[in-house]
Design a protein around this nucleic acid. Structure first.
Lengths: 345, 345
DNA sequence: TTGAAAGCGATACCAA
DNA sequence: TTGGTATCGCTTTCAA
């Protein structure tokens, strides 16, 4: 008995005295196989510790069960949080997640190619850099693609928080709280995430006859937020509130303002967007809009699976509403309860 | 011309009027192929946009180029940081990383099986839960395995920060700074990471005739650190320093102490271990020992690759020394320069 | 230096 | 309900 080589369908078929095709069918629960043979085959398989070779299978079925994931900057905790959601949910659906890339640096050509070499059934992208090239390759090779929290210029499916609505909400809240000099710290330029969150807020301000007091680039990093705060704090006239379009920058903003001796929210309000774990840490206690990453991950996989079955399904975009998390980093509107209940409409 | 089906070796062989085997050899740079045919084949391949089918290849070579990764709690940023290192470095070595699991919950049996079904060439584990079962399966099926920052009871390769040495260092530093009532907040019970970091420090204390002032379980989470701090702050006699065996708990400790009105480090020193990004955030400015995750990732892959080539290579463990990062959360020894230069020995 | 052909392990079609 | 067999795309002997 050769213990080195693992059992295959053939091993089982020999033992069970049936054809390999029968084994294959029995193993995947084909209805046409009699209960007897099937039970027999199953027991042999179990006894042998058999499990199918995914490579051989995908060679013939042309479906690998693999989903590629292109991940953004791991220093923004929202991405690891998305990863966790995706890993669990892909597993539940019988797929596996391959991380093709992680970080701010541009996506390598070789990483995109892995997508094709391994015959991935789909791909999810949350990174900003070089997305268009990846989108192009996916289209060309009919690999279903969903961008998460990123609506690319090139067409593809997209799942996103309703960033504009969230930004609007935050803008409204700041105005309702009496703020008039509201600075905005934007993130990675040319990303829909940043611009939607920004325009949502500016629209809210505009509806009250206000314009942003200032607009700074925070590069979607803690350090960028820190630098933006320094700049704002040193101006002759300071803003009375800062809206950073994501939490990681907002934390930097808070720390930067405090270093300049300002109190948050007494001297200046700060709000963010995402609701990463650190937003609820006591040092920050950040008011923010929670990104519904669980629902987003679920929807992303839905969109992918639909297109695996029918590649001709037209692209679609899904926007899922985020939820306001009122904490302590921003002054509250005097009529906060009314304000919040108005949101029900 | 059928644009639906992708080119294969056969497509190329037909065009180049050579045998498929010749194509295969030319593509992988076999020395025996003449420069002429080889150049021809290469140009045709490029023209066709050919790339090999990894599934077909691994079916025959029995090497998939895939490395499985079992990841710990994503809310501890050290794991995403490890992920980033691993993704990049596996890519550079021509491998791909498949995330089998992420989070605190126990590893599913199905995730372990994916390791086998996809014929992974190796596996890296950083999670604590159910590791032993995974180790067992890997051994049984000859899948090289390295645990990162986790030395399991069951035998396998392991790469780790020199946790004992790091703990010792922190203990020495706290004592040198004049602390006498040093509390320790431990992490996930029964993990070598936590216990080594603890015993390293207690040994240092013992060498000065001290014992830990208290020992609390922080569950390796921010919230656990917070709770531990509350408990310590409420005692009739308080510690004058807290050593949390990882940064994420240390941040919780700091926030917890501050909520109780204590100042860090004026009233109480806090040190951690890992040097996650948030450790350097201004609100915390945490003194800690940096885990050399880049070097650890590199070594983990080394160990894996060696065993892919020669499966009989005996297990080994690698301990890489971490580096003290002196910041502002702990009182400094009066002779800090001397203390630091002593570390050179 | 190149070709022919035999697999790798599973699936799926066509028969029976 | 089951069997036989071609096939997926690539690699690898063994010959030439």
């Amino acid at each position: 008995m050769n213990r080195k080589s693992r059992p295959t369908v053939e091993t089982i078929s020999l033992r069970a005295r049936v054809a390999p095709s029968t084994v294959s069918r029995a193993l995947k629960g084909d209805r046409r196989i009699s209960e007897r043979t099937r039970a027999n085959i199953l027991s042999i398989a179990r006894e042998l510790g058999y499990f199918p070779n995914a490579n051989a299978r995908s060679l013939v079925t042309r479906r690998s069960g693999l989903i590629g994931f292109v991940m953004g900057d791991v220093n923004n905790p929202i991405y690891p949080e998305m990863l966790e959601q995706l890993v669990r949910r892909t597993g539940e659906r019988g797929f596996r997640l391959m991380v093709l890339h992680a970080g701010r640096q541009p996506l390598l050509e070789s990483s995109i190619q892995a997508l094709l070499q391994y015959q991935m059934d789909g791909c999810i992208i949350t990174s900003a850099e070089l997305t268009s090239r990846a989108v192009e390759l996916c289209r060309q090779h009919h690999v279903p693609l969903v961008t998460m929290n990123r609506v690319p210029r090139a067409r593809s499916c997209a799942v996103s928080c309703n960033n504009a609505a969230g930004g609007h909400l935050l803008g409204e809240m700041l105005v309702a709280a009496g703020h008039r000099r509201i600075a905005i710290v934007v993130g990675t330029p040319n990303t829909s995430t940043s611009s939607d969150r920004e325009t949502g807020a500016t629209a809210a301000l505009a509806s009250h006859g206000l314009a942003p007091f200032a607009r700074l680039d925070g590069h979607s990093t803690y350090e960028g937020g820190l630098a933006a705060a320094h700049e704002l704090a040193c101006r002759p006239e300071r803003p009375d509130a800062v809206y950073a379009v994501n939490d990681i920058m907002a934390l930097g903003v808070i720390d930067g303002l405090r270093r300049q001796g300002l109190k948050v929210p007494e001297d200046i309000s700060v709000v963010g967007f995402d609701d990463i774990r650190a937003a609820s840490w006591l040092s920050y206690n950040l008011t923010t809009v929670a990104q519904p990453i669980g629902a987003m991950a679920e929807r992303a996989l839905d969109l992918l699976e639909i297109r695996m079955k029918d590649p001709d399904t037209p692209d679609e975009e899904a926007y899922i509403r985020g939820e306001l998390r009122v904490r302590g980093s921003a002054r509250l509107p005097p009529d906060i309860d009314a304000f919040l209940s108005d949101l029900q409409d």
